[in-house]
């Protein structure tokens, strides 16, 4: 498998397969996220990177023996470990009898939303999700720290020229996407607010929203996309998302309850839970969307910078 492009495509298919596998295992929320995030964003990012770092892997003799030894040993330990595991799917396994029953039985009374995963995600273990949002935020900041390019020289006339030349070449796909993007955005908002009742929630919505913007950027060029959503605005949204999430917790703290205790947010506890979950889902959605867009813009910006340098070198090369 020397061609990295094929490798990445296969990884995309693998993620999609694992998403369908999760659906078969009744883990719908996870399947949705895996499909959107795993198959969508990571494959996309890898493709962008491959355009920058070259498609073919150098045929090098890789050192199999050490790897084989480590792998076989760890595999053996794991297989050794699986013997006492509860069998697949039996109902009286310890995890189904200790903590989970309360979530399944009381979540309707305490939080009042049908999708138990969202209720656990947003209320019982809200701090985990907060940590997760911060992870995404860190990744965004990390990528920005690594790849952010200085202020780009604004050459308007050149971009419009590129735009026109691209126009007649990508006519079909541009028209179709123009039709599709509103629906994708609408669908993202639907997923955002539908998280309480069916599979969905902040993460998936954010990613779909970002996918729409990225589609737009790929087709209409980075500079036009930057005009639509400029860099500092995205950063503001990313920060605002995390702060919103945190402030929900601080508000509940000010009202006397523990951090992330939504019961005190409104008069009656269940309404408070609803409000709390809505707000933090919104925070999650904003952060994820803006961070994904930020990451893609950075990657694309870096690629554009590389291409400019190549052009500049070629011009110098030719002129020499």
């Amino acid at each position: 498998m020397k061609d990295l492009f094929a490798v990445v495509m296969l990884l995309g298919i693998y993620s999609l397969l694992s998403a369908s596998f999760f659906v078969a295992m009744d883990a719908v929320d996870v399947a949705f996220t895996e499909a959107a995030v795993g198959a969508g964003i990571s494959t996309l990012l890898m493709l962008v990177v491959i355009t920058m770092t070259g498609r073919s892997e150098k045929t090098t003799r890789h050192k199999p023996w050490l790897a084989l030894l480590v792998v076989v040993f760890t595999g053996g330990v794991l297989i050794y470990g699986t013997f006492d595991m509860p069998y697949f799917g039996i109902a009286d396994a310890p995890i189904h009898s200790h903590v989970a029953p309360r979530y399944i039985n009381e979540s309707m009374k305490e939080i009042g939303i049908p999708n138990i995963v969202t209720s656990v995600l947003a209320s019982y273990r809200a701090f985990d999700t907060f940590g997760e949002v911060v992870v995404i935020f860190t990744a965004g900041i990390g990528v920005m720290a690594l790849l952010s390019v200085g202020r780009r020289p604004e050459e308007d006339e050149k971009t419009t020229a590129i735009n026109d030349s691209m126009h007649e070449e990508y006519l079909v796909i541009r028209i179709v996407t123009k039709m599709l993007i509103p629906f994708i955005l609408l669908y993202a908002l639907y997923v955002q607010f539908h998280g309480d009742f069916g599979p969905g929630g902040g993460f998936q919505a954010g990613v779909i929203f970002a996918a729409a913007i990225i589609l737009y950027t790929m087709l209409f060029g980075l500079t036009t996309a930057r005009k639509v959503i400029n860099q500092s605005f995205i950063q503001f949204i990313a920060a605002a998302g995390v702060l919103l999430y945190g402030c929900v917790g601080i508000v509940s703290m000010l009202n006397g309850a523990n951090f992330f205790d939504y019961n005190v947010l409104a008069s009656d506890p269940v309404a408070g839970q609803h409000l709390g979950i809505l707000l933090i889902e919104w925070g999650v959605g904003c952060t994820v969307a803006s961070v994904m867009i930020m990451i893609f813009f950075n990657f694309a910006g870096r690629r554009e910078m590389q291409q400019n340098n190549e052009k500049v070198n070629n011009i110098e090369g030719d002129s020499l």
């Binding site: 009744d26 929320d29 399944i104 995963v117 993460f203």
Partner: peptide, 11 residues
């Protein structure tokens, strides 16, 4: 099915 692992895996 148990919702807790699903939450963990989302993260």
């Amino acid at each position: 099915s148990n919702p807790l692992p699903h939450v963990l895996i989302l993260t």
